[in-house]
Computed example of a mutant assay.
Amino acid sequence: MIAKKQLPIPEYFEAKKVCEVWRVPYQERAFQAKSWAKKHKIPPAASDTNRICLLIIDAQNTFCLPDFELFVGGRSGSGAVDDNLRLCEFIYRNLDRITTIAPTMDTHTAMQIFHPIFWINDAGEHPQPAATLITLEDVQQGIWKVNPAVADSISGGNFLALEKHALHYVQKLSDDGKFPLTIWPYHSMLGGIGHALVSAVEEAIFFHSIARNSQALFEIKGGNPLTENYSVLRPEVLDGPEGISIAQKNAELIDKLLGFDAVIIAGQAKSHCVAWTIDDLLTEILARDVKLAKKVYLLEDCTSPVVVPGVVDFTEAADAAFLRFAEAGMNVVQSTQLEL
């Protein structure tokens, strides 16, 4: 990549508001974006000869704001907030070089396999979120069972089929060497405030869209009630107990991403949805051409791992994953040092 002078940050941007929820004044920002493009001679993205995609994974309130359900604080305690401040500044400073921004959005409803309501024990209790891992042995021994009451909503009332799927699901996770099924708090709920992008990030994406005449490529993931979906590129389990497909990998997005000259990745959480997505992208790259890994850039200072003090710390696992990605040819960089 050729180093170029970076743009200034628009005066309206307030760093202190990155941790707040507010309404983006779209019409005002649209006017400012057009004026900004004219002032700084920013061309439409369609004229880019070096096409760059910024993939922003799950920069949603549910993960990025301290008062929400699954705030990714990292070891610092303010991880996602700090990450989004740097991410917004990166977007503004490189507005004229980023061709397309692709935000992913974790999207859930109440009755999904990783939410408490899906499971029940003999006492009629649901598993505690964020503190319960449901293993194959748990299901085989009946420690945790499918809640019969959810069958009507998820499987058309066929409880036996749902029960069979649940056993198959945890078996598949075990066979594939993946993490046991984690029961998460209700989060990224479709229609809720937690589902929305962080306001400051949304504002930066909108400003980019208008300034560069470039439609943001929103990708929705996680709505299938029968599987987890950490990675935006594929769900955790693709088939049911009879071998019938229940989900597919996101082949269209994979092709789009690998069609760019460079793909820059940021978002939350480094240890989960970010790592899973990069891992799936690397799998596709290795199957096509290992040299493609060189076009991927990971903004390490714009992502944080899941850390719950005194409970769990995924920092080392996340760092190990990024080291593996770097060894495969991907570029692990700081947002302030990447020269586009």
Rank of each mutant, 00 (worst) to 15 (best):
Q268P: 02
Y169I: 10
I120N: 02
G240S: 14
K291L: 10
L253E: 09
E252I: 10
M105S: 13
Q171T: 12
P103L: 04
F179I: 07
A328S: 13
D289V: 01
F68N: 00
I117F: 02
P225V: 07
N84G: 01
D138T: 10
M189N: 08
Y297I: 12
I120Q: 12
G267Y: 05
S76A: 08
V306Q: 07
G194A: 11
D289I: 03
Q334A: 15
L340T: 14
V308E: 12
Y26G: 03
F325P: 08
T104R: 03
I98Y: 02
V263M: 13
T100E: 12
F325I: 13
I220G: 00
A293W: 08
A59T: 03
Q32N: 05
R29G: 03
H187E: 10
S188W: 05
N84P: 05
C19P: 00
F260I: 02
E242G: 05
E228D: 14
P10K: 07
A3S: 15
F207N: 02
A318P: 07
L282A: 12
A3R: 15
Y92S: 10
P43Q: 08
A59W: 00
L233R: 08
A80L: 07
D289K: 03
N84T: 01
L282Q: 14
I120G: 06
H195T: 00
V21N: 06
V333M: 15
V146E: 04
V296Y: 08
L190T: 10
E28F: 08
S214W: 03
A328I: 08
M189F: 04
R288V: 09
M111S: 10
D289Q: 04
K291P: 03
I210V: 15
M189P: 05
P44V: 12
N213M: 09
L197F: 06
I57W: 03
K164F: 00
E316N: 11
V150H: 11
I91R: 01
F207R: 03
L87K: 01
M1F: 14
G177Y: 04
D280R: 09
V146P: 06
V237C: 11
A80G: 06
I154V: 15
A266D: 00
A15E: 13
A3K: 15
D255K: 12
L298S: 08
P225A: 09
N147Y: 05
D138E: 12
H165L: 09
P25M: 07
A275S: 15
K16Q: 09
E252V: 13
Y92I: 12
G192W: 06
H126G: 06
Q268T: 00
P43R: 11
A46H: 11
A45Q: 06
S35M: 14
I2R: 14
